[in-house]
Design a protein around this nucleic acid. Structure first.
Lengths: 229, 229
DNA sequence: TGGTCATATGACCGACTGGTCACATTATAG
DNA sequence: CTATAATGTGACCAGTCGGTCATATGACCA
């Protein structure tokens, strides 16, 4: 594809790391506090210690700076999970999902503001600005769908299971759980400590257990219950 | 309490019904399309066919007109359900919850724009403007909690069940389902027909079944699974 | 008829928005 | 040193925002 230009312009990449971090952190704070629509570029440049003209030399527009946050998130996550592997090699799909959720929680607790900014916009406002950011959600759903199909292929899950339904259930739960963690966690003094506490862990375990148990049994025992006595 | 003034001012109640409806509908459309923060009073008055000065003679501010929408919703719902009762007198709590969800879906399909406007702000943006609208969510949670406690008292649900957990599960599901119905339904030509179609109904049944089955079995069979081989 | 009072109106306000641009500053190269 | 290119800057733009207010309108009463 000719003319394919990188989204944050070159001038931004040339910046000293310190300045770049300041801008990124300012943007994270702004998006976390105000969401996408109400986020103010004026406040971002003020907090980030750059001029407005510079901002538009670094980024195309508001959407561009947010997309850059997504790239930063991806990079941070990669670094965070570089040496974290599932504790067992052969895991049941639900065990793996549980591990994924908990690993995600760890990351979210380590970078709560970034998580807040991005999940707020992607998960919540994404419902309504679907055209802008819908792709990301769709990708996540596809990954889940592949996971379920793999589980079926390996015989771990009843082949008659409704894949789309399972995807929706798992997606809903992972969103609900991370939202819960973020909202409750922000009230705590030490998020990490709270997340790792046995009480919180058990709550998450129970939530996932409700999901898993329902999901395992759904198809084989479900009978349409349209008539009620 | 002295000085307790009704929220939409008297001048608004004096208006001819036609005009009042025009304003309310304009507000519904605006909130449905833009959410709370980005909703524009200028657009509301333009669509509603009133002047800006009049708007501020009817309402205190943006929050006031939204609160009025909540009152209208309550009234419409009351009228809609006046002659709808559960099909059976003695229902299991989960049957009753299922009926509630489906009845709610019927209403939402009948008033999709109003539902969209209000649920968008209360359920979604409410997470962040918690101080403004958090009370409504809290009331809904309390109602659910009472329902569960009643079920336990009547022996329908294992007394060892974690009430808060059950509340969160049911709340999450009813939100997820109504969001799903709204998003998918808006794509259909005839929402009501789509909602009532056997295919949609079965999907909802399955979702609720996943929740119910998981919830019923959670406490009695749950064992903390912190160690993984 | 003239007077009074509730209501209707939109020009106007200051503050803010995302975005631009002519100019100042700095870094690099010859 | 000078010339040139890259980068930094904030005043400025048109537009929108929520909110106000002097004035106009019209209904009711004496």
């Amino acid at each position: 594809m000719p003319g394919g230009r990188r989204l944050p312009k070159q001038t931004f990449h040339n910046l000293p790391e310190e300045k770049r971090k300041a801008v990124v952190n300012a943007a994270i704070d702004e998006f976390a506090d105000y969401g996408f629509e109400s986020a103010s570029i004026n406040r971002i440049v003020a907090k980030g210690g750059i001029s407005k003209g510079s901002f538009y030399q670094y980024f195309e527009d508001k959407r561009d700076v947010f997309m850059h946050l997504l790239a930063v998130l991806e990079q941070e996550k990669l670094a965070y999970f570089k040496d974290r592997r599932p504790p067992a090699n052969h895991m049941d799909t639900f065990q793996y999902f549980r591990w994924m959720i908990k690993a995600g929680m760890e990351f979210n607790s380590a970078y709560p503001r970034m998580t807040q900014a991005i999940s707020r916009i992607l998960l919540v406002e994404g419902l309504y600005y679907g055209k802008l950011f819908g792709d990301y959600h769709r990708k996540a759903l596809d990954a889940l769908r592949m996971m379920i199909k793999g589980a079926i292929a390996r015989g771990e899950v009843d082949p008659s299971v409704d894949v789309d339904l399972a995807v929706m259930v798992m997606d809903t739960w992972s969103n609900a759980i991370s939202t819960y963690i973020l909202n409750e966690g922000m009230k705590q003094k030490d998020i990490m400590k709270w997340v790792r506490s046995p009480k919180t862990q058990e709550k998450i375990d129970k939530l996932l257990y409700v999901m898993e148990y329902g999901l395992r049994k759904t198809e084989s025992e479900f009978v349409s219950q349209t008539s009620q006595t």
